[in-house]
Computed example of a mutant assay.
Amino acid sequence: MTQRVKEIFPGSPGQAAAGRGAPPAPAALAAKVRTLAPSMTRSMQRVAEAVAGDPAGCAALTVTGLAELTGTSEATVVRTARLLGYPGYRDLRLALAGLAAQQQSGRAPSVTADIAVDDPIADVVAKLAYDEQQTLADTAAGLDTVQLGAAVAALAAARRIDVYGIGASGLVAQDLVQKLLRIGLIAHAPSDPHLAVTNAVQLRAKDVAIAITHSGSTGDVIEPLRVAFEHGATTVAVTGRPDGPVTQYADHVLTTSTARESELRPAAMSSRTSQLLVVDCLFVGVAQRTYETAAPALSASYEALAHRHHPRGTKR
């Protein structure tokens, strides 16, 4: 076996995949900040928080002005702009101006408050609904469709597909596998970490391995992906941390967004929403590419389930 070595561009692991393509649209800027801020240095976080919190004010500042406002350096401002996906500070200022215009028109609502222990249930519903909608919108805005298309193509042609996830991400992995099975693909989502690695050893060039991990650093998910990568399988990471360790072994990185974590809304809740959106995008893309075989397979599964719920001889 020839060990694969992924080319990593200068910077954090995974920036090679995450940083390609056009700069993010203004609507995706806030999502980018939420996604990347936890992995930034404290000085870069101050810059990111400033531009996300007051896009109109920061858009009016020069690079020197923003550095002074945040107590950082011009170099830090430029590095932050590049990490967020912009070639330079000028491009970031243009995005900030666009985001400010959207907010003024009411198309980019401000973030609601966290859920409080004494919130009426109606407020809980409203806040959760808003956060879920915002998470989905942020994920859609920040999703790299080139990477998504490449992952879909690999899945559609795969001999076998393994999906790795632990905890809440494991439930998402099971969801994807169930969908793929219904269109006739061979897919597995081993829940035991040892079994996941054992399965990964059997993967080859025509196979696909998908790791789902919000943190990007879950060892029980990274290890089977590493093994699959080194055995020649096409690898995909679905993660909220495009600079996380998991992306070192990912040919394609699909970034998810998440709502703000709070005491009553842990990351596992908010990350699941965005992961399910990405999973649905993968499934629909594969079903489109394999429609001639996927459609009959779906019909057969629907018919089988219908017979299960309505045995022969009973009324429907």
Rank of each mutant, 00 (worst) to 15 (best):
V5Q: 15
K6C: 12
F9Q: 15
P10H: 12
P10I: 12
G11V: 14
S12R: 15
A17E: 15
A18V: 05
G19H: 11
P24F: 05
P24D: 03
P24C: 02
A27S: 09
A30I: 09
K32T: 06
L36H: 01
P38V: 04
S39C: 01
R42C: 01
S43F: 11
S43N: 13
C58S: 08
A59F: 02
A60F: 05
T64I: 10
G65Q: 02
L66Q: 01
A67N: 01
L69V: 05
A75G: 06
V77F: 01
L84C: 06
Y86V: 06
Y89Q: 05
R90F: 02
D91I: 12
R93L: 12
R93M: 10
A97T: 08
L99K: 00
A100S: 07
A101S: 08
Q102G: 01
Q102R: 05
A108I: 11
P109L: 15
D114K: 14
D114N: 15
V124H: 02
A126N: 04
K127C: 08
D131L: 14
Q133R: 10
Q133D: 09
T135N: 10
T139D: 05
G142T: 09
G142E: 05
V146G: 09
L148G: 04
A150I: 07
A150G: 14
V152I: 11
V152E: 01
I161S: 01
D162L: 15
Y164K: 04
G167I: 08
D175Y: 04
Q178I: 08
K179P: 07
I183V: 12
I183H: 06
L185N: 06
A187T: 08
H188A: 14
P193Y: 01
N199P: 00
Q202Y: 08
K206H: 14
A209P: 04
A209C: 03
I210P: 06
I212F: 02
T213S: 15
T213K: 00
H214N: 13
G216K: 00
G216R: 00
S217P: 03
G219E: 13
G219C: 04
D220G: 07
P224E: 07
R226W: 06
F229V: 12
H231M: 10
V236W: 00
T247P: 05
V253Q: 02
T255R: 02
T255Y: 00
T256E: 03
T258S: 12
S262G: 02
S262W: 03
L264I: 13
A267N: 12
A268E: 09
S270A: 09
S274Y: 00
S274N: 01
L277I: 09
V278R: 09
D280P: 09
C281D: 12
E292A: 10
T293E: 03
A295V: 10
P296N: 04
P296I: 00
P296C: 01
E303T: 15
E303H: 11
L305V: 09
H310C: 14
P311D: 05
R312T: 15
G313V: 14
